[in-house]
Computed example of a mutant assay.
Amino acid sequence: MKYFILISVFFITILSQSQEVQYFPQEIIVLSQCSNAVNKSDCFYSFLEKRVNDFIEKNKKVLNYAKKDTLKTGGRLILDAEGKIVNEKSYFSISGKNIDKKIARRFKNLLQNLEIKEIQNRKVAPVNSYHLLNFNYVVKTQEKTYNYRLIQNSEKYKGGIIEEIPRFPGCDNLNESEARQCFQKKIQNHIRRNFNYPKEAQRRNLSGRVSVIFIVSEKGEITKIRTRGPHKILEEDVVRIIKLLPNMSPGKANGVPVSYPYAIPITYKL
């Protein structure tokens, strides 16, 4: 019986592209309103925090959609050489069950019309520095009234972050662009080498696409494998293949090892 396997690899985060990266001092967005502030990163974060608070206050019904007790908001900003937000690489979102699409679109617009005066410690292309901003709230209901309280972040926003992807064995000493291509090639070869269409799936004429997400931990280990597909037999085969992946050099954020997620759809076709 002839069969085919189709493989794609998706990098979930935006990647930088440099062999020798200068992480510090971190990139800082300076708003016109913060030009005289002592700590311009604190001022920038506080400015956006107020925008988010004002938005929720004016759209109190958004709290009705927070079915759980937490409302999550925030996003990622990447700026171009002129200091403008790169929309296709940036996002700002509000999440919660049944959030109205109109409200979500209006929330995204909170990033519009930011009066950016300058970018300090600007990273030189092709390095990408991104700014991660989170504003999460505890939502409580009391006599049909919705109240919310900002949860203080465990990690204080200090400025831009430079990411480096995990290195597949044999992909070390490459810049980010080369490492990305190398990872794609290595993992495709790994899947093809270890692929064996389950006999039971062939017998039952099972085929389709299995999506798998896994984490390369800060130790470089493959962890937290999750799958979604048309049948358990195909999902179990994908888990088997992913578990055979070797340990890798971990990804980094500003030079510190971090966990890094990957998504791979694998299509089984008879």
Rank of each mutant, 00 (worst) to 15 (best):
Y3L: 05
I5L: 02
L6D: 07
S8F: 06
V9N: 04
F10A: 10
F11W: 11
T13F: 07
S18F: 04
S18A: 03
Q19S: 11
Q19W: 05
V21Y: 01
F24H: 08
P25I: 02
E27H: 15
V30N: 08
L31I: 15
Q33M: 13
Q33N: 13
N39L: 15
K40Y: 05
C43P: 09
C43Y: 06
F44G: 05
F44T: 08
S46W: 13
F47K: 13
E49K: 15
K50D: 13
R51G: 03
R51M: 07
F55T: 07
I56N: 12
I56H: 09
Y65Q: 08
K67L: 03
K68E: 03
T70L: 05
K72R: 12
T73Q: 07
G75R: 07
L77I: 10
L79V: 09
D80Q: 12
S90W: 07
S90F: 08
I94H: 00
G96Y: 00
N98F: 09
I99L: 02
D100T: 08
I103Y: 08
A104F: 03
R106E: 04
N109A: 12
Q112M: 15
L114T: 15
N121A: 02
N121V: 01
R122G: 07
K123D: 03
K123Y: 00
K123Q: 01
K123E: 02
P126Q: 13
F135S: 02
F135Y: 09
N136Y: 08
T141E: 14
Q142S: 10
E143L: 12
K144L: 15
T145I: 15
N147W: 09
Y148L: 12
R149T: 12
I151H: 13
I151S: 12
S154L: 11
K156M: 12
Y157M: 14
Y157I: 10
G160S: 07
G160K: 10
G160I: 10
E176K: 06
Q181A: 01
F183N: 00
K185C: 01
K185W: 01
K186E: 00
Q188H: 01
I191W: 01
R193H: 04
R193Y: 01
N194H: 14
F195M: 04
F195W: 04
P198R: 03
E200N: 12
A201N: 09
A201R: 09
R203F: 08
N205H: 08
L206N: 05
L206A: 06
V212F: 00
V216H: 06
E221C: 07
T223Y: 10
T227F: 00
G229I: 03
P230T: 03
K232W: 01
E236I: 00
R240F: 06
R240D: 05
I241F: 00
I242T: 00
L244F: 02
L245G: 05
S249F: 11
P250V: 07
P250F: 07
G255Q: 14
G255W: 15
P257I: 10
S259I: 15
Y260I: 12
I264S: 02
I264F: 03
P265R: 13
I266P: 15
Y268T: 03
